[in-house]
Design a protein around this nucleic acid. Sequence first.
DNA 1: TAAAAAATTTAGACAAACCTAAATATTTTA
DNA 2: TAAAATATTTAGGTTTGTCTAAATTTTTTA
Lengths: 216, 216
Amino acid sequence: MNTLAEENYLKSIYHLSLNAESVSTNQMAALLNTKASSVTDMLKKLAEKELINYTPYQGVTLTAPGEKIAINIIRKHRLWEFFLVEKLNFKWDEVHEMAEEMEHISSNELIDRLDKFMGFPKYDPHGDPIPDCDGKFKTHDLKPVSAIDVNAGGVICGVRDHSPAFLQYLEKQGLTIGKQICVTDIIEFDRSMVLKMENKTVQISREVANNLLITL
Amino acid sequence: MNTLAEENYLKSIYHLSLNAESVSTNQMAALLNTKASSVTDMLKKLAEKELINYTPYQGVTLTAPGEKIAINIIRKHRLWEFFLVEKLNFKWDEVHEMAEEMEHISSNELIDRLDKFMGFPKYDPHGDPIPDCDGKFKTHDLKPVSAIDVNAGGVICGVRDHSPAFLQYLEKQGLTIGKQICVTDIIEFDRSMVLKMENKTVQISREVANNLLITL
DNA sequence: TAAAAAATTTAGACAAACCTAAATATTTTA
DNA sequence: TAAAATATTTAGGTTTGTCTAAATTTTTTA
Ligand SMILES: [Mn+2]
Ligand SMILES: [Mn+2]
Ligand SMILES: [Mn+2]
Ligand SMILES: [Mn+2]
């Protein structure tokens, strides 16, 4: 099928496309921890296979077949993360690197059975939606905590930053998926936010508030 | 750590070493579906890393570190096969290729937790022993059915041939791991064997008898 | 035990996926 | 709107793991 490198490039293009019309060479190089010239080489190869639309200097978008492959990789990534947390008791900050490897196991039959084995979960441990075997999924409508006002609140349903450092911090504060929060104050000096939770109050920086997502 | 190709070579050397003092270049080329010259290149590389003992023209053996790596790959292979059969309901003839990929997932913590999740199984779906996290395992003392006499018998505990064709054939005849059998007759003409099982009788060729293993 | 046959290694290439440095195109800014 | 700055591509290499063809070593056989 496709090589591991090709799969990682397609997945990166998909992720970066969520925040912009088209994706630039440098964006990809930064995300993939590689050099712009290496990205250009791969873009030519993916364009040759008609998995991306590529015009030199103008950035790239996925074609329909390219997007299908990208979504399938993401499906595998998230299902394996769910497995690692729910069945093998890993913490949500420990699973990403393992899933980066496991997402390349090729069998679709395997992943469909894994999906069934776990009861067709809809969201991964970080709150991200898991595409079904046809690539369909719905995102709930999320807002960063930083975007809501005093006395408003909601349920924590996702994170923007998936780094272990951030996830560990949230865990320690009890700010995990499914928790109800309410903003009780915004400190004028640095715009940090005071959150009321079921049985305690925590104060988070603007930076943290930007990366913590809730549903209203 | 080691590349996927290196791991596959080490594993092959381990498997071939079970039937001979040292392993030849051509044996490896046949098993790995590659050319002898490619094998020579890799042997130099593995010798450089001190994972094998290699004298040109004289074949190879694993060093202690090389064997440790090989056994760990085999541990992963067999645990994933067990998972696929016991948890995802694959048949024993369907899992080998998937496990060939999964055995290269690098995390040992993952495999140790998988082991625990499944209750520390001792044998894989084909009857092969699963090394524990220290690389230790014991093989039960097996004989091919072809080596036993009329009126002798035992319990099916392994296979020598892991091909889907052979495994499917055994499945169809009910000759699966754990079944009790007894040799009731050996046909003089072609030395095929008649086996009595719990509630039926089957006749198998010499070829099949050579590849079916039992404990006495 | 010397030739023939077989096994193995060496030499020289190639594709994939990277890299650095140089060239070129695009965008920003004065 | 022309420099300057930035982004991207091209040119030329490297490493890994493969290949074919040729050379060499070992084993078999007559
Ligand atoms: Mn992840
Ligand atoms: Mn995730
Ligand atoms: Mn197997
Ligand atoms: Mn097996």
